[in-house]
Design a protein around this nucleic acid. Structure first.
Length: 431
RNA sequence: GCAGGGGUGGCCGAGAGGUUAAUGGCACCAGACUGUAAAUCUGGCGGGCUAGGGCCCUACGUAGGUUCGAAUCCUACCCCCUGCACCA
């Protein structure tokens, strides 16, 4: 018990040191968190069938609370996902069908479970779905019992709504804040939840929940937000090099790509990200920051970040494979790679199978690039080759007439294609 | 409804009858320098064919028209913005 008491004291400091405290609804929260175990909740709407790296800050935030001895409640928004949160959105979103939301919900529940500890006990995490109490809520009851506590004036003043008054917002999305407010009230009443955390765009929704809870339960509950993740170059965080979202689902973003996503982090962002995303202690982060300053070319901080994140999300084995693939590809000459390594690389890197006949017939590389989707058109493929941007087995291709040939194959059946500095693809001959 | 302004390549934005696949900026891709980072510089950036030089097709809201020739002129239609009016 003593051990936990001291841990309570740490969560605030920990969040603060990591730069994860953005806004708090009440300055007293710091002291309160040291005095008792809080039930802390954070919601995730099933807008896709996977969470993405951007969801990690609040999700790991919950995990940090649990590690500090508090009780996390992850809420999957089976109901709110049907409505659509206008927060942070510039335009009205298209509604997902009930089937889609249900399917997404199932996937997201599984992902949420991976990051929290559900072993029974005082600090055991809980996973709830707000459809349980919101779906089927009688409209007239809702308007009378809940709606009456909100004025249009305050609802309009929320950033998520006011910023949309020019472009338009539907009544549906406008109502979202009431649903989330009700969630907080419901969790406070039934689970003793006293704190809601979330991204900074959730501030308005959180405050709405605090007010509703105060009115209905005469209970004071609290809110805390994490900062929006920004990048030094001003681009939006969470997109891979190809411009696609970096998902947690390995079927959407392979562990290799996931690892690559983090290892390519800008020097200017990497220390911040170590703080935001990892559980590494301050001393280690400070040491990595020092390494970055003195020997940036070693990229130890990036490596630590990539390792930590890949292991956290995909597990040790996938980390090993992603790292092995990265080392093999970025390490230099490929001829020496043994088949086992190649096979591992094959399983991680975007890969395609080649027909034996393509080799024997000497198919044009340009056509192969297009058929595999490495290049979008033959014109583009030719330009890449002419610009010196295409490599086979890390050797630059200098002739647009390059054809596939037996002699190029590694281990008699593999071909490593690289586009630019860091985009690797593995082609293997199908037997 | 009336008046005015406008719809151009992923985005912004020039062009106002002919060297215009269409200036420029952003984004994006590649190259050089490096460290799978940044900054900078260079090249590319509708598509197809071509070793190369080049050839061809499709594009400036939509549909027609005038012209040897149109993103540029005319007509109709659609959509957006800004005033005014109407309605309440």
């Amino acid at each position: 018990m003593l051990r936990f008491a001291s841990r309570f004291m740490n969560i605030w400091t920990e969040l603060s040191q990591r730069g994860l405290l953005y806004q708090v609804t009440d300055a007293k929260l710091e002291a309160l968190l040291t005095q008792e175990a809080f039930a802390v909740y954070c919601g995730f709407d099933p807008t896709a069938d996977s969470l993405h790296v951007g969801n990690l800050v609040p999700l790991l935030g919950l995990a940090r609370f649990q590690r500090a001895g508090h009780k996390p409640i992850a809420l999957a928004g089976g109901a709110t996902g049907l409505i659509g949160d206008p927060s942070g959105k510039k335009y009205e979103r298209q509604l997902n069908t009930r089937e889609q939301v249900a399917a997404n919900l199932a996937c997201i529940r599984k992902q949420l479970e991976k990051f929290l500890d559900f072993t029974p006990g005082r600090y055991s995490a809980k996973l709830v779905d707000n459809a349980e109490w919101l779906d089927g809520f009688n409209l007239l009851d809702f308007l009378r019992d809940i709606g009456k506590h909100f004025t249009i004036n305050e609802m309009l003043s929320r950033e998520s709504v006011s910023s949309r008054l020019d472009t338009g917002i539907s009544y549906t999305e406008f109502s979202y804040q009431l649903l989330q407010a009700y969630d907080f009230y419901y969790l406070a009443k039934n689970y003793g939840c006293k704190l809601q955390v979330g991204g900074s765009d959730q501030w308005g929704n959180i405050v709405a929940g605090i007010e509703l809870t105060r009115k209905l339960l005469q209970t004071q509950v609290y809110g805390l937000t994490f900062p929006l993740i920004t990048k030094a170059d001003g681009s939006k965080f969470g997109k891979t090099a190809e411009g696609t979202t970096c998902w947690l689902d390995p079927a959407r973003t392979s562990p290799y790509k996931f690892y690559q996503f983090f290892i390519q982090t800008d020097d200017r962002d990497v220390v911040k990200f170590l703080n935001y995303f990892t559980f590494l202690p301050q001393e280690e982060i400070v040491a990595l920051a020092e390494s970055l300053r003195l020997q940036p070319e070693k990229r130890e901080a990036q490596r630590a970040l990539a390792r930590h994140m890949t292991e956290l999300v995909h597990g040790q084995e996938e980390l090993r494979r992603a790292e092995a693939a990265s080392i093999a590809l970025f390490g230099g000459p490929l001829e020496r790679l043994d088949e086992r390594t190649l096979l591992e690389v094959f399983s991680e890197v975007p890969s395609f199978s080649l027909r034996r006949s393509w080799i024997t017939d000497g198919k044009l590389l340009v056509d192969v690039l297009v058929e595999t989707g490495i290049e979008s058109s033959k014109a583009a493929a030719r330009q890449s080759i002419q610009g010196g941007g295409i490599y086979i087995n890390n050797e630059r291709v200098c002739d647009v007439r390059e054809r596939l040939s037996e002699s190029r194959l590694l281990q008699g059946k593999y071909l490593v294609v690289r586009r630019g500095k860091r985009n690797y693809y593995l082609l293997g001959v199908a037997e």
